[in-house]
Design a binder for these strands. Structure first.
Lengths: 313, 313
DNA sequence: ATAACTTACGGTAGACGTAAGCATC
DNA sequence: GATGCTTACGTCTACCGTAAGTTAT
C-alpha cells in the first residue's frame, strides 16, 4: 500500500467510478491506475470495487471504510507538505478564495488590497461561483476557503465561521412614490414588481421568509445573481430592487435611491468556510482576520479543533 | 514524500536520532535511510534534523511538527491494513496483550481460555512486564492492549478504561497471632514485618497511602513483583503478606490463611489501555468484553472517540 | 460499434545494498 | 581508533506508457 494507490482510489470514487476519468484527472494512463488498484486489492486480500465484467459498478462495503481512511491520509499528506512550505518560505505560496459575486464585488476588494500589500509574493486566486459550487471547490481542495451568505453550513466536511451580519435595503429610481413613505412596510413594497437575488444567493432566503410570514405574495419580476444586474433593471424602471446594503454605494448611484429595510428583513450572516482538518498557512489565517477581525488565528484554530467533536444537541 | 520516508523519519526519532539503529530496526541499510531523509528534506525545502557535521544532533522545530503529522499518517496506514484484514478473514489474526504478573497469573486465564475457544485461529500473544514497559509496548504498537493496575493513565497516547475494582487482603502462616483478631487495624499490622508488592505494581500505591494517612511506618521486609513470591516468603515466616484478594485461592493455599483488609486499604482499579485512534479488530473488542463485560464495543468505541476531545477541567 | 477496463510488454526511474570516504567522539 | 553518517556506484525492482485484447452498453 502506498500513497499513490490511495490517490488513485480516491480519484476513481470522485470521478463516479470511472478509471479512465480518474487517469485523465491525475495525468496518468488508464492501465496504470487499473493495475495499481488490482495490486492494492490483491495485497489487502479484499475487493474494493464491485466489477461487472470489465466495468466498475460500485464500491464495496469494506471499500467505503478504506476510502474514508485513505481520504484522511491524503489530507494529512497535503498538510504535511503545507506545513513544510510554511517554514520553507513563510510569505510565499498560493491562496485561492472561492466566493460569490456580492462578496467579490463589494466586500472583498479592500481586503484583497490590504492582503496583496502585506503578502506580495502570495499568488491570490479568486473563483466565482454559486454557494454550492464554491463549497465543493473547498471540499475538493480546489480552493482554500470560501465566503458566502447562503447554505455553507450544510456540508459535513467544512468548518464555517460567521463573519458579519448585514441587512437588505430597498432601491428605487428617483422620484418613485415609495420614497415619500417615512417607514416602509412589506405591504408598501408588494405594490410594485420586485427585482432581487436568485434563490440560493445573498440572503434571498431571508427575503422570502419575511413575505411568507406576513402572508404576502410579492411579484418577483426578475431574479439576478448579482446586485449590478438588479440595479440596472431598477434604473430601467422594471421595478424596485431588494439587495444587500453593502452593494449600494450612494455616491456612485446617481440614478437610484436607497431606503432602509432593516426592520423588514432579518439580518443575513456572511460566513467563511474552510475544509475540516486542513492545515492553514499563516497568511490564510491573516486573510481571514483581515476580512473578519474577530476571527483571529486562535479563534479559527479552536473552531477547527472543535469541529471534530460530537455535536451537542 | 512517501510513506517509507515517514517510517524512516519516525524510526530515527524513536531510536534517539540514530540512523544506524533505525536502519537495523527496519531491516534496511543505513545509507538507504540517510538518503531518503535527505531527499525528503530536499523536496520539502527545510531541514528536519540539526546536523553536527556528519552526526545528527537534534530535531528541528518544523521537524517536530512534521513528525506529528507523519505519525498520524503511519497510524492511519496501519489502520488501513487492519481494516482490510478485518474483512479478509474475520476470525484470524493476531492479538498481543501486554500485562503484569498479577493479571496474567490470576485474572486472565479464564478469559484467555474462553477467547481461544471462540477464536481458535487468532494467534494470542502475552507479554509480561512492568506497567511502564507494557504501556510503552502499546504505544509503539508492539502490543494491542495492556492491562494493569498502576500508572496507565499518565500516557497521552493511550486510552484507558476501568475494568474492575479489587481489594487487598492480609495473609499469614497458620496459627499467627493476628488471626485471633476479629477486625484488623493498621496498628495491628505494623507490629509485624510486611511482605508486599514492589512500588509501581498491583495497587501498591493504595497500601502506602493507607499507612501514610494513619501516620504509621510499616516495616517492609521484602517487596516482590508477583504474589507467588510474596506467598512463598510468608510461608517461610518472614512476615505477613499484603496482596490482591484475587491472588489468594483458599483451596490451594494449605499453609496460609487470609484475612479481610477491605476496610484498611482503598480499592484498586485494574484498567485496560489501548492506543488512541487505533482501529480495533472485532475480536479485540470481544476480548476486552470478555475481560470486563461492561466494556462493550459501543462503550469502547465511544471512549476512543472522546479521547480526541478537549479535556473538560 | 463503441466505450471502458484488462493483459502484455518494454523502457526507465528510483530505491536498495555494498564499499569506500570522512567527521566527530 | 571507533563510531556514525555521507558519497559513489552497480543492481534490481516496480511503476508507467503504449498497444493489443476483451467485455459490456
Amino acid at each position: 500500500m502506498n500513497l499513490q494507490q490511495l490517490r488513485y482510489l480516491n480519484e476513481i470514487v470522485r470521478r463516479d467510478l470511472k478509471i479512465s476519468d480518474a487517469a485523465a484527472a491525475l495525468f496518468t494512463s488508464q492501465p496504470a491506475i487499473s493495475k495499481q488498484i488490482k495490486l492494492l486489492e490483491e495485497e489487502l486480500g479484499i475487493e474494493i470495487f464491485v466489477r461487472n465484467g470489465k466495468r466498475i459498478a460500485a464500491i464495496t462495503e469494506p471499500g467505503k471504510g478504506l476510502l474514508a481512511i485513505a481520504q484522511r491520509m491524503l489530507l494529512d499528506a497535503e498538510n504535511f507538505k503545507q506545513f513544510a512550505q510554511e517554514f520553507h518560505s513563510k510569505d510565499t505560496g498560493q491562496l485561492t478564495i472561492a466566493t460569490t459575486h456580492t462578496q467579490a464585488r463589494y466586500a472583498l476588494p479592500p481586503v484583497v488590497k490590504q492582503f496583496i500589500e502585506r503578502y506580495p509574493k502570495v499568488k491570490l486566486g479568486l473563483h466565482q461561483g454559486t454557494p454550492t459550487q464554491i463549497a465543493e471547490q473547498v471540499l475538493h481542495g480546489e480552493a482554500d476557503l470560501c465566503i458566502a451568505t447562503e447554505s455553507l453550513s450544510s456540508y459535513e466536511g467544512l468548518v464555517t465561521l460567521p463573519c458579519y451580519d448585514w441587512h437588505h435595503c430597498v432601491i428605487t429610481p428617483p422620484g418613485h412614490p415609495l420614497l415619500k413613505i417615512q417607514t416602509l412596510t412589506l405591504k408598501d413594497i408588494v405594490q410594485y414588481p420586485i427585482i432581487t437575488y436568485d434563490h440560493a444567493f445573498s440572503g434571498r432566503s431571508k427575503v422570502n421568509e419575511a413575505f411568507e410570514k406576513a402572508g404576502l405574495t410579492p411579484d418577483i419580476a426578475l431574479t439576478a445573481i448579482d446586485a449590478d444586474v438588479i440595479k440596472t433593471y431598477v434604473e430601467l424602471g422594471l421595478g424596485i430592487g431588494i439587495l444587500a446594503e453593502i452593494a449600494f454605494i450612494p455616491e456612485r448611484e446617481l440614478h437610484l435611491r436607497m431606503m432602509n429595510a432593516r426592520h423588514l428583513f432579518k439580518p443575513s450572516t456572511t460566513r467563511i468556510a474552510i475544509r475540516k482538518n486542513e492545515y492553514l498557512r499563516a497568511y490564510t489565517y491573516e486573510f481571514i482576520e483581515l476580512f473578519a477581525p474577530h476571527l483571529t488565528r486562535k479563534v479559527i484554530a479552536e473552531a477547527m479543533r472543535l469541529s471534530n467533536f460530537p455535536k451537542t444537541p
